[in-house]
């Protein structure tokens, strides 16, 4: 199988996720080439062909132009599979390429068998297999699903260029907001999820955090709803934590949340849904109403 891996580059440097593309390529087997909009100064160690586009000329985010350049690499490599990371870069660019080639796209792949790709669905509560029916296919792989692999060698660099006009103008980056709550250093983090029902119930979870002597965290929906500020958010767009004890209160466990807390020493989850994906990483899943169980636990600890 011939693979074309799509590397990522941001704010002047190659992103570590390229190692996951190599991990996927090694797992599925086949000849891999890479496409990268980046810089000749920062290319991955690799012993195949690298189709390089100068980000200085074409921009780090410029989807119409990146698509045309990637299609040039596709023409040269004639890959069976074009592999992106399922990220803000990958899920933005992949469908454009799939549409141009009119080939199947499978999103957020976590495994494969034969010609089928395993993906999550229904907020990661369920899985299914998706089989492309076109001879070429585009996939995006879930960040963290395939082990990172440091590749070796010096790539054979082929520089690509185009005169296609841009349809979007990239204005720049906004840095992440300063974190006023340092969850990363806490030994105990007690987090509130959507299951708490309303803003006032944050206090129920805060009381448990206090009783444990820990910090208060939250899942994304709680932050989006404005129940607590972003500084408390745990997950891939918030903070990554690994406390000795993590208590997830009414958190279903999206991939993005799990990515931010699954390395915790001990995970206690409270959820009324026995099938909630948080159960996959929890050491103990208490099937109960958060608003009944948490105050009772707090009272016992105090």
């Amino acid at each position: 199988m011939k693979l074309l891996l799509v590397g990522e580059y941001r704010e002047g440097r190659l992103l570590d996720t390229s190692a996951e593309l190599f991990g996927f390529a090694a797992a599925i087997g086949g000849d891999a080439s890479i496409f990268l909009v980046g810089s000749a100064e920062d290319v991955p160690a690799f012993s195949g062909a690298l189709y390089l586009v100068d980000a200085g000329l074409y921009g780090e985010y410029n989807p119409e132009v990146h698509k045309q350049l990637l299609l040039k690499a596709v023409e040269e490599v004639n890959p069976d599979l074009i592999v992106f990371i399922h990220s803000s870069y990958g899920w933005d660019l992949a469908p454009r390429v799939a549409a141009s080639l009119k080939v199947a796209q499978v999103s957020e792949v976590i495994g494969f068998a034969d010609n089928a790709y395993e993906v999550g669905c229904c907020n990661a509560k369920m899985h299914r297999n998706v089989t492309p029916s076109t001879s070429k296919a585009v996939i995006t792989i879930q960040a963290g699903a395939f082990p990172a692999l440091q590749s070796e060698g010096t790539p054979l660099v082929k520089v690509l260029s185009t005169d296609v006009a841009s349809t979007t103008e990239f204005l720049g980056y906004e840095p992440a907001e300063a974190k006023d709550v340092n969850l990363a250093k806490a030994e105990i983090v007690v987090s509130a999820g959507r299951g708490i029902g309303k803003k006032e119930n944050i206090e129920v979870i805060r009381s448990l955090a206090k009783a444990f002597g820990g910090e208060l965290g939250a899942s994304r929906p709680v932050v989006d709803a404005g129940w607590i500020d972003h500084g408390h958010q745990v997950g891939s767009t918030g903070q990554t934590v690994a406390p000795k004890l993590y208590v997830a209160c009414g958190i279903s466990g999206s991939i993005q949340h799990l990515a931010g807390m699954k390395k915790s020493g001990f995970i206690l989850a409270i959820n009324k849904d026995k099938d909630a994906p948080i159960g996959e990483v929890a050491d103990v899943l208490v099937v109960a109403d958060v608003l009944q169980f948490v105050p009772a636990l707090t009272a016992k600890l105090s």
Binding site: V130, T131, T134, G279, V284
Partner: peptide, 26 residues
Amino acid sequence: LTGSSSFRHPEKKGSGVVLEGSVDEL
């Protein structure tokens, strides 16, 4: 352009304990 099959609950990977019962017992 694609086909779908084997819609299923994911295989439980964790060794987690599931506790059910009254709040006091829990």
